[in-house]
């Protein structure tokens, strides 16, 4: 802090010295846990040698990035990552929002609470367990779908882990199932926070439920929607590794629709074992996410300054 001291006007520091003191533990942890490791991005441009250390290893320019662009897989993994994450952002907005709005209309608070609690359950399960569950439903031999449900509907068996066409639906379904409870809580909270007087006034004016929703509820919770969406946009290049690695069970036939940047990088790392390559991918993902967040925030700002995150 003594370095910073000289930079600030003395009067400000004298007046708010307690604030700096209060923030000190937080700043210290952020510096240690987040800012110092950021210098690790150097690894992305180095051919790492452990005995020479990070600073002492030779530079390699952009060589560590090459493998991400080299093959026609580059296009596939980028496309998959963006399309899936795009669909997740939309689904994680629309579905939980709709759920929250509907729960809010439930007369029985007890039931609303009960549903909300149950919806939260999948959030607790790790992706490994989720992959077991998915397998229990989709396995060729013992799967619930093939042994029970499809015959009941008079349909033919499907070899799920060999059928590319179904996975662009399966993965968003699994992802939404896992996260919907979490996001519903957040939107629900925002909706309940809205002042009751708005609705009373609307009812007196004879506004329909739909009107109340589109004119009162949604506009008032827009800041929350913006925060949640921007945060997800910041990670649009980072795929949920567990989802894409565990759930499809490494079925090669499905790669054209399940291979994403994170799984691609992981498989490369398994063979090549070079942390430079994974660092390069991580850096690229951060930079793209960073740029997109600023871009979308800028757009939000242009539309409505109050809704922007910063």
């Amino acid at each position: 802090m003594d370095i910073l001291y000289g930079k600030f006007q003395k009067s400000v520091f004298r007046k708010y010295w307690m604030f700096y003191l209060m923030m000190l533990p937080g700043i210290a942890i952020l510096v240690v846990n987040n800012y110092i490791p950021m210098f690790g991005i150097l690894i992305a441009f180095k051919n790492i040698n452990y005995t020479d250390g990070i600073l002492g290893s030779p530079w390699t320019g952009l060589r560590n990035f090459e493998y991400l662009f080299k093959t026609k897989d580059a296009w596939i993994i980028t496309r998959n990552t963006l399309l899936y994450n795009g669909s997740f952002i939309v689904l994680n907005l629309i579905v939980p929002l709709a759920f929250a709005l509907m729960l809010n209309e439930m007369r029985s608070r007890f039931l609303a609470k009960l549903h909300q609690t149950i919806m939260f359950l999948p959030y607790f399960l790790s992706m490994v367990v989720v992959s077991y569950l998915a397998f229990a439903f989709m396995s060729d031999e013992h799967g619930f779908l093939n042994t029970t449900l499809l015959p009941m509907l008079g349909l033919d068996e499907v070899k799920w882990y060999f059928t590319k066409e179904v996975w662009p639906y399966v993965l968003p379904l699994v992802n939404t199932w896992k996260w919907v409870g979490y996001y519903t809580v957040i939107y629900m909270a925002a909706i309940i926070g809205i002042d009751e007087e708005y609705y009373e006034a609307a009812t007196i004016d004879g506004a329909s439920k739909w009107k109340q929703m589109t004119r009162i509820t949604i506009p008032l919770i827009t800041p929350v929607i913006v925060i949640m969406t921007l945060l997800q946009i910041g990670r649009i290049f980072n795929a949920d590794f567990g989802l894409f690695f565990q759930v499809p069970r490494e079925s090669g036939v499905l790669f054209p629709v399940t291979n994403v940047i994170d799984t691609y990088v992981y498989r490369t790392f398994l063979t090549v074992g070079d942390i430079g390559l994974s660092s390069a991918a991580g850096l690229l993902q951060s930079v793209v996410g960073f740029t997109l967040v600023f871009l979308s925030n800028w757009i939000v700002r242009r539309i409505n300054k109050d809704n922007a995150l910063f």
Binding site: E66, Y67, K70, D73, F255, N259, Y264, T268, T271, L277
Partner: peptide, 8 residues
């Protein structure tokens, strides 16, 4: 780079 692509 090639080895990484081939691994996939």
């Amino acid at each position: 780079s090639e080895v990484g692509a081939l691994a996939n």
